[in-house]
Design a protein around this nucleic acid. Structure first.
Length: 571
RNA sequence: GGCCCGUUCGUCUAGGGGUUAGGACGCAAGAUUUUCAUUCUUGUAGCAGGGGUUCGAAUCCCCUACGGGCUACCA
């Protein structure tokens, strides 16, 4: 029975095995594939293929039965969600959906000092706008809750205690002031103070104090933290699904605080405990976490969870369009593009930060742009629907280096999506703006107008600037065009034309064009001399679709009126 | 300072020992449109530097430079 299953698995393997990495020692083959039972990822050395294929089925069988792909997006509610955060959520979402798994939203609010009201709702609303709807999490239900770490507070202590009991962690009583002064001192000597295996024996902790004293300090309620006791001289080697082999030596790592004196766990403990309890199979997060990966691996090991611990992958950061460093709120303000998905009002300063939604981006354009920032399908395809992204997504095709954000390309994506939309749909979105301006238009006519101008727009908000003359007479005329095209006899010619237009009975673009051409021929006037001036009179500038279509849509009497006004004003 | 990660056109990227180094954005030119935009065509521009290994290196190795991350009782 088991054998039969293996046959299927091997078939799957042949189909999906595709990724080859090389590193300094030998070549490895990596396989990742999903089946009805779940997702599996593993590696083996080329030379050992026969041996491995003989040995591995059982291991694989166990893993497959146990693990359904589960990933989480775990932001901290310290402010609006950055577009880099949205991209992290997106990649998690794509990965989950690709492998038929679950995408969870967990709110990491273990730092009460940095809590910003409204941030959590903002995160949820942002994900919804982007279409990245979690299967479980804060605001979405699920069986592994609560999904807000502050509400899980009571659960963490036992794991910290377990670590202490088993010698993986210890109590530390050093005050913030003491540590700060040690840091200052080290800085003065051009060193950096680190609470680690070199210094912990000279500090106030349960490693240096007698058991009695430790007990007494605990009983008198003295403030303490629990620190991880980083083991000595161990090489932690891990295959990051994006970056390949990454290695660390524990001698370089410090004893991180796991449990704070306020009774809350730090990110490291809470993260590992929750990922374990929520059965997370793949941790996909930003590069800023790469350095703490060895700590997390060691935590899984110390807690006895190595067998089921997740795979790690660290996403590159999004960098500023110009200059140094990662993309920040300031860049957006300075260069005029949004950094956040939605408009955000800072609850403290009242300051606004623009959002992609409010700036007129379509969520699908925003997502498409974000997906291509640091990932590509390996083909030349650039436009992807969310379904296509899910189908094509693969962590191994995520680029390792940071990507500079290009606002121009973001606009280009939006333009593309706008052009793809039907005039009807765009007209619907345009209507509220017209109503606001007190303009009433017949739906059919509006759709026709939109169809004429949508290709010249980048955003829905451009619809007005490209079509206002269909609804309202121009209030001014473009100076350059006047200079170039408005000659001494232009006014007179236009009045003659106005009189002629009055005589047209069927006010249709085609008919007008036909009769107009005949009229021009009879007068022996060149088109060039009058076309632009007429356009100027109707539109106010030298832009817009075919002039005869404008004539038709603006209406006979209104056209004549506008020509007369222009002639009067431009005398 | 220490540790870790990275580096192909201005930007996003493909390519992973033999390629005229491919595509996209941007920019420029041309065509179409007697306007402007769209669209189409063409052009523009790149393997960070230095050593190795090799018949042959953008590709593998080492060094340097540069960029980034971390180095909090922040995440």
């Amino acid at each position: 029975m088991v054998e039969k299953k293996h046959a299927n698995i091997f078939k799957c393997l042949e189909l999906k095995g595709k990724q080859r990495y090389s590193n300094s020692e030998m070549q490895f083959f990596f396989f990742s594939f999903s089946s009805a039972e779940g997702y599996f990822y593993f590696q083996f050395p080329t030379s050992d293929f026969k041996l491995f294929s003989y040995l591995w089925p059982e291991i694989l069988f166990v893993k497959i039965m146990e693990r359904r792909v589960r990933v989480r997006f775990a932001p901290s509610p310290t402010g609006p969600l950055h577009m880099g955060g949205v991209r992290t959520a997106l990649f998690n979402y794509l990965f989950a959906k690709k492998h038929g798994g679950d995408f969870l939203l967990r709110i990491e609010d273990t730092d009460q000092n940095r809590y910003v009201p409204g941030a959590e709702d903002y995160i949820i609303e942002s994900l919804k706008w982007c279409g990245l709807v979690p299967d479980e999490g804060v605001g979405f239900g699920g069986e592994y809750g609560p999904y807000r770490q502050s509400e899980r507070k009571v659960m963490y202590k036992q794991y910290a205690d377990f670590l202490i009991e088993n010698g993986f962690a210890y109590y530390a009583f050093d005050t913030a002031e003491e540590l700060n002064s040690l840091r200052k001192e080290a800085e003065a000597n051009k060193h950096v103070f680190s609470y680690d295996l070199h210094t912990r024996n000279n500090l106030k902790n349960s490693l240096t104090l007698s058991p009695e004293e430790v007990l007494e300090r605990l009983q008198t309620g003295e403030h303490y933290v629990i620190r991880f006791k980083m083991p000595e001289n161990r090489d932690i080697i891990e295959e990051d699904l994006i970056r390949g082999r990454v290695s660390f030596n524990t001698n370089q790592l410090d004893d991180k605080v796991l449990f704070k004196s306020d009774g809350m766990p730090t990110y490291h403990l809470a993260n590992v405990v929750d990922d374990h309890l929520m059965k997370i199979t793949h941790v996909i997060r930003g590069e800023e976490w790469l350095s703490s990966m060895p700590l997390h691996i060691l935590l899984y090991e110390s807690l006895g969870w190595s067998e089921t611990r997740p795979y790690f992958s660290h996403l590159p950061l999004i960098l500023k369009p110009e200059g140094k460093g990662k993309l920040s709120k300031r860049d957006g303000d300075k260069m005029g593009f949004p950094v956040f998905p939605l408009l955000w009002k800072d609850p403290e300063t009242g300051e606004y930060s623009r959002g992609y939604r409010e700036d007129g981006y379509f969520p699908e354009a925003f997502i498409n742009m974000l997906a291509l920032l640091g990932w590509n399908s390996g083909t030349e395809q650039e436009f992807f629907s969310i379904e296509e992204l899910i189908e094509a997504f693969d962590l191994s095709r995520v680029v390792k280096s940071g990507a500079r954000f290009d606002p121009e390309k973001a606009k280009w994506f939006n333009r593309h999506y706008l052009h793809q939309k039907s005039a009807l749909e765009l007209a619907e979105q345009f209507k509220p703006e017209l109503v606001d301006k007190g303009i009433e238009v017949d739906g059919n006519k509006l759709e026709i107008i939109v169809s004429k101008i949508k290709d010249r727009c980048e955003f829905v908000k451009d619809l007005w600037s490209q079509s206002h003359y269909f609804f309202v007479a121009p209030e001014s005329y473009d100076e350059k065009t006047i200079k170039a095209k408005w000659k001494a006899d232009t006014g007179e010619k236009l009045l003659t034309i106005a009189t002629f237009l009055e005589t047209i009975e069927e006010w249709k673009a085609e008919t007008i064009k036909e009769l107009f051409s005949a009229f021009m021929a009879s007068k022996e006037w060149g088109f060039g001399a009058v076309m632009v001036p007429i356009r100027l009179a109707l539109v106010g500038a030298s832009t817009g679709p075919d002039l005869f279509e404008i004539l038709e849509l603006v209406g006979q009497q209104e056209c004549i009126r506008r020509i007369e006004i222009a002639v009067e004003l431009l005398k």
